[in-house]
Design a protein around this nucleic acid. Structure first.
Lengths: 200, 200
DNA sequence: GTCCAATCTTTACAGTGTAAAGTTAGTGTA
DNA sequence: TACACTAACTTTACACTGTAAAGATTGGAC
């Protein structure tokens, strides 16, 4: 192996992008910085990724894979006798923990125009994450007598919205006020919404 | 008035920025494009805004003002005899309508690293929007017997998370799948969350 | 009428993504 | 073993970007 050919530049660039993302934030990230961190010339990435967008799309795909794994782990860690609400709360906590643990990656996945969000694989893996998160919603709908398909879908989307919205706003809070201690406390108990919004 | 001095370049630049934002999206926006659209040289903005971030911070401040007005209008439009849940639903609908009507502005306000989110005035106006949104939550907490301050705050944040999360995910859906018809249907009825999550 | 300060232009520079052409080296073929 | 071929990487180039600095213009105060 000479030092002309890198060996696994593709992988190295993805790791470099992740590193640069964490160091400089999503706005400070540049293709040339990634190339430099991987120790190659600034034009080398073009042979592995069509563009900056291509590189970040791939990084987002990988990140969604990790994200899905985290959500699945949280689900599997649940006690067999834990209530459905508890499992949902655990899913929300895991969601938030990922967002706070990988803030820049999370922003890349959900709030950046740089990745190609129409990319087929990216759509697929983000769909998998969604499926994992809403896995516990269906039995909860059963329990509550929500049976028609449209309502179940609305329930899934609203649950996702609540959890995602909290994560997103937490990150925005971090940007506005610096690191915020009271966020490490995790998701508020979502059953408050049940009390607040129960019919009647 | 010669054509050397513009007259009200500051205002013109803010309008140009809004226009460019809608035409090219947040990623296609550039300070030079704004200057060109306002008919001045590319360096002229520096006398009115310290930087690109400064211009977009100001635009976000204005946008939050409009946003707050929209939310207030929705609240004031509520019938005196409409239920608290209905008022909350109306607030959510207004929130979503703003996001879908001004998608790029909404992204600038909540999902872009370009504005200075530590800016004092920006923090203030975004706080006002939050206060307007959560105006209906307090009486709802009263009605449900949620009285301690911490729980009320958690209820406010969770309501905001739900509405904001739905708006944010709707915009992401638009980016992924192009304009999405079934989103114009508005917020799903949030009382589903009440049914889904009620204690017991 | 003159000076001043604010506004805008011109010029310049470092940084960006990306396209095109040139260089190197690993690989399959005779 | 010698040779071509091709993938990987570098060099060069160009049109952009934000922003700093210096020069030109103008309206208004004195």
């Amino acid at each position: 192996m000479s030092d002309y050919h890198h060996g696994d530049l593709r992988k190295a660039l993805l790791e470099a992008a992740h590193a640069v993302l964490n160091e400089k934030g999503i706005h400070g990230l540049s293709l040339r910085a990634c190339a430099a961190k991987a120790g190659v010339s600034h034009a080398a990435p073009s042979h592995h990724f069509k563009s900056l967008s291509g590189l970040l799309t791939e990084l987002a795909v990988i990140a969604f894979g990790d994200f899905t794994a985290v959500l699945r782990q949280a689900y599997d860690d649940g006690d067999a006798d834990s209530s459905l609400q508890q499992r949902l709360q655990a899913a929300g906590d895991a969601y938030l923990q990922f967002a706070l643990g990988e803030p820049e990656l999370f922003k890349l996945m959900f709030s950046s125009p740089l990745p190609d969000h129409q990319n087929e694989r990216l759509c697929e893996v983000s769909g998998q994450a969604y499926a994992e998160l809403t896995r516990v919603v269906k039995p909860l709908c059963d329990k509550r007598g929500i049976t028609d398909k449209a309502s179940v879908e609305q329930a899934e989307i609203l649950v996702w919205s609540t959890i995602h919205g909290y994560a997103h706003l937490s990150l925005k809070q971090m940007d506005s006020h610096g690191v915020c201690e009271d966020l490490t406390a995790g998701m508020p108990p979502i059953e408050i919404l049940g009390t607040l919004l129960e019919p009647g």
